[in-house]
Design a protein around this nucleic acid. Structure first.
Lengths: 205, 205
DNA sequence: TTGACAAGTGAACGCCCGTTCCCTACAATG
DNA sequence: CATTGTAGGGAACGGGCGTTCACTTGTCAA
């Protein structure tokens, strides 16, 4: 009866753990949100901690499959406009995809308690983004789209502010529109600063 | 008998809440770490939640007193070297001061559960730093130390990457030295990019 | 010296937690 | 049709939780 129960439990756990944390969530609440009785859960997981571990396994696998290997690297843009578009599309996805948002919140909450969460948090928030954009920027420098510079440093200077605003969206979703606008303004400022100006250039202040 | 007990309880609560979260901390453990018995705590706070609220009150007041008002703004540096030095000193403090670190971890963990924690988190991690550096950069542009640009955007582009690495130090303290080195490299890169080069200039790649 | 009060103790309370056990209902297998 | 295995339900468990209460002790003002 109902084969996908295990997956439904994991989804509910992600939902609650990402809001109230592991310790702040109890099995009764979790199973009740699925219209079950608490004892039924133990047909699918041997303990609450087993749910946590499965959730983390799944999150690690998901990250590895989507961002972990060199094959998933985005193509090197052919123009600065394409960098702009590609960035905004990526940000849009990561800010609006419910599951990705919840995983980020989960890692944020649990990073100080669980070593694997800690590791994955650093990838999600910092090194993963850098590793994604460094080769892109290196390629763009080769194509003469960006001023020659250290691609890794540029990737860090590019992704860290964007990551900070993604965190803001997670924390205060009502500010999402403002944050997206600020991300776009930042991207444009970055392009103005580091892009090679083939046509006119805009400046501010 | 022992007057500072209330403060010692708050310190212990900050310690444990910042590691295990509010829900993951119990009164027995908290009071035991002070060599007390759990019931004694109730002479000083009426409930566990009252401890949490006091801790947050204190953190908010602390932030307001140290970073909240215009009088605490750092002076406008007279040179790019001074910006470098001032930044590194500030980062050094914020990464190594135990109490500040714990407050940051606390806000990170509890931001999705408590509205006041959420607000303070945004100040700590994002807007506070921006608001601190925007007038500094405006002043430096007036002095001709930085290229004319939008000071708020520059402050954001400067502080967000630094903030990201401070978070890394909180998460993985064993990487503190590497993170500090990366912050310094970033500061130097930023100065190279936006500073007006009165003498020679260095470039990389 | 005494009385009031603040600080700390130890035992107990009721509740909720994660977990177990046993029973039922159904689906698939032979 | 009988059998077996699986998903779910209901009741109960031991233990840990936050909290209360009656009691002792030390401090200080009157």
């Amino acid at each position: 009866m109902a084969k996908g129960t295990k997956e439904r439990i994991l989804a509910a756990a992600l939902d609650l753990f990402s809001q109230n944390g592991y310790a702040g969530t109890n099995i009764r609440e979790l199973t009740a949100s699925l219209g079950m009785v608490k004892s039924s859960m133990y047909k699918h997981f041997e303990s609450k901690e087993a749910i946590w571990n499965s959730l983390l396994d799944e999150s690690i696998a998901y990250y590895g499959a989507h961002f972990g290997s060199p094959e998933q690297l985005p193509p090197v843009p052919e123009s600065l406009e394409e960098l702009h578009a590609m960035t905004m599309q990526l940000v849009n996805f990561t800010v609006h995809d419910e599951k990705v948002v919840k995983v980020r919140k989960l890692l944020t909450i649990e990073q100080f308690r669980d070593g694997r969460a800690r590791e994955l948090a650093t990838k999600h928030f910092l090194t993963g983004l850098e590793g994604m954009f460094a080769p892109v920027f290196a390629g763009m420098m080769d194509k003469g789209l960006l001023r020659p510079d250290d691609p890794a440093m540029l990737a860090f200077a590019y992704t860290a502010p964007i990551s900070a605003l993604i965190h803001l969206c997670d924390r205060e979703p009502e500010k999402t529109d403002a944050a997206m606008a600020q991300i776009e303004a930042f991207v444009e400022h970055f392009i103005r600063t580091y892009g090679t100006d083939r046509k006119r250039e805009g400046s501010s202040r």
